[in-house]
Design a binder for these strands. Sequence first.
RNA 1: GGAGGGGUGCCGGAGUGGUUAAUCGGAGCAGUCUGUAAAAUUGCCGCCCGAAAGGGCUACGCAGGUUCAAAUCCUGCCCCCUCCA
Length: 424
Amino acid sequence: MNAGRKVTTSQDMDRLLKRGVAEIIVEDEMRQLLLSGKQLRLKEGFDPSSPDIHLGHVVTLRKLRQFQEWGHQIVLIVADWTAQIGDPSGVNVTRPMLTIEQVKANARTYMEQFFKVVDKEKTEVRWQSEWFGGFDLGDVIRLTSKFTVAQFLAREDFNKRYSEGRPIALTEFLYPLLQAYDSVAVKADVEFGGTDQKFNFLVGRELQSMMGQRPQQCFMMPLLIGTDGALKMSKSLGNYIGVTEPPDDMYGKVMSLADSLIMLYFELLTDVPDAELEEFRQGLARETVNPMVLKKRLAREIVTLLYDADLAGEAEEHFTRVFQQREIPEEMPECRFSFQEVAASTAGSAASKAMRKSECDISHIIVRAGLAKSRSEASRLIAQGAVSVDGEKISASIAPIASGSVLRVGKRRFVKMIDTNNKK
RNA sequence: GGAGGGGUGCCGGAGUGGUUAAUCGGAGCAGUCUGUAAAAUUGCCGCCCGAAAGGGCUACGCAGGUUCAAAUCCUGCCCCCUCCA
């Protein structure tokens, strides 16, 4: 088993333990473990309370990948039990509980997303239900008896809520306990996650030592700030970039990031060497480099990471053409429907008589193409001048269209309209 | 077991009989500007019909009731939170 492990130079070690790392508890022990030549079991839990993995998750997954390249064993835990509780970490409100069905459906979509970053062959995937499925009340009581309320109230978010008289659900206290027990169950040597996991990790350490295991090392990465530029990237805040998003969208979302996030993203999500990052940093500080240029590099790196260089190149071309030169993209989704049918849906009204043959009520089409949720919304968009057909801004919802016309809504949404009655 | 507070639109949070599709803030969307950045600024922000003017429907925990008129008053029910024990 030792065969795959590379000799570790102190330079390698520094890169592994420093680049994009917030804190390691206990760093010295971590170094010793790495030097011991033992294959380490590196654990990270994923809470499948939503179906997507985003760049925030990728930060730790990439680090895990690096360890994997050194021959260590990754253990990913699908936290199907704790997901039902709802992780309170860093959130000062009680989370809604999910049903087991929701959790399972979400968890299923996780696997392939993990393996966009980590090596599937060297990854052990475990479900919490493997061990908690057989838990009975006695087990729960034994587990809870090991800690006190005071210990848990030490945790910042609990403490804050408690002192402000806001609710803390009893199940929320269970969350760190279950997560800690996971470490016991898989005999973790190291646990990975964001800095918001510190408390949970430490409970894991304690529990392991209470149960006769060597306490795990806690490996914490900074939290990735989301596209809003302020809060941690998370699904529930809607400020995320999903790993399965199409290359063009992913590229575009990176381009729309606040400038202040550029360096953070470079550090946490790319392999651009530290020396180069330092140049970037200085360039930004002295304003000798346009942040947009760096962001394009960043966007390319990220798309390459999750897809490949070719697709990243294409995404960049698309971006340049559509958003910088304001041209129409070469490819866009098609919306196929019968023009006649749409026209017919307004039949009977005075307007339909005034409508010439080639004209259509665009608001219906916008809804049909999924570019607006309702006709009311579509009408508003038209009224605000956000809608154009073949480059012509339209001001009334009745407008001429032809099969193959390009419908544009807002800056970034395009659809080609194809008449299913009249295609040759 | 006792006392108190509360359930309003995506979120926060006003509103105690009509002029309330509901003040305000945040989020979001769109316009101008631009680097799909920030800042600034303007507009929109329940659904349906209508080219428009306009009209209709649904909505303030649930169900009833009073009233010409209810998010606002009455009755019952459900749910949530805090404190004391």
